[in-house]
Amino acid sequence: MNDVIDNKCLVCNAPIKFDPKLGKFKCEYCKSEFTAEQLKNMNDEKHSTEKEAIEDEYLIYNCPDCGANIITDKETAATFCIYCGNTSIIKNRLTGKFAPSKIIPFKKTKEDAINAFKKLKKGRPLVPKSFVSEKNIEKITGVYIPFWLFDVVIDGSLEAKGTKVKHWSSGDTRYIKTDYYEMIRKGNMKFNKIPVDGSTKFIDEIMNTIEPFDYSELIDYNHAYLSGFLAEKYNVEKEESYEIAKNRALTSGKEIMLSDMTGYTNKTVKSNNLEAKEDNTEYALLPVWMVNVKYNNKYYLFAMNGQTGEFIGDIPLDKKKTVIMGIVSFIVLFLLVILVSYIIYKVGNN
């Protein structure tokens, strides 16, 4: 049984990749295009590979095309041969309990990620001038990242205290009337597909920030979509990830119930009896472009949502620019305040 599969053109047998713009697989040699369904049965036919585990951390495979050794870590589910560039999918890492049920294919290309990186300067005056240069990009990798998508039902009650304050005047007397209320909301609501990054390789905050994905484009998983991209399998169990989704749902459930208590000047929660129940969970691979940048001997990691194009990451500050901008801003504002005060003086005296 083959553990590694690759995508071959059905016409010329050359390696083929998924083209995010076409939404299809395209052979770069004979220009043939195939849908995922057409390629679905192709993967387990011709190639075999010899797997040899050398350590717990790394595994060596032989490229089915050129025979070169491919070294991967334990979590990688799809990779490339560094010699011939062929995509290799390690099948047993995406089957059984690791079989994703859904996938969102890449819509954004590598060029989109480079352009998004270059545009980081727009609207951000404190970005170092040379930071967004393309030459600082060390590596751009399209990765299908394993996500747990949790459907969470929030059920229970929330009790709060609220006040309504009215002010009015009669003659020289001013009145303040404060009405005190107790509010109760009991009920339930459902959150659909709260995503939790299932891999410890990726920083959770970065994965949080590229949310949301457009789930209307979530489709049934097919190995074929992985061609041309890296893929990871989860290494954080569902139960552990669920805690994150549960807490997010509980926070929002409380806020939704509080926001239903309208017309109050102040609100404070008296008791919170909301509970979360896991309703349905799916394991999906979601597309992300990871961009590694080296600038002034420091490394910076950026990520782009491979579907929506949301590009995020922490950009270093240009300290010199920050100081200059602070001083200039202070001087301009100072002079402006003096000028305004002089104008007010002149208008008042006339």
């Binding site: 989704a245 807490n247 997010r248 749902a249 995020i312």
Partner: peptide
Amino acid sequence: MVKKATEASEYID
């Protein structure tokens, strides 16, 4: 730009 998500309001049905 990087922020930890603490709520899930965009996933409410």
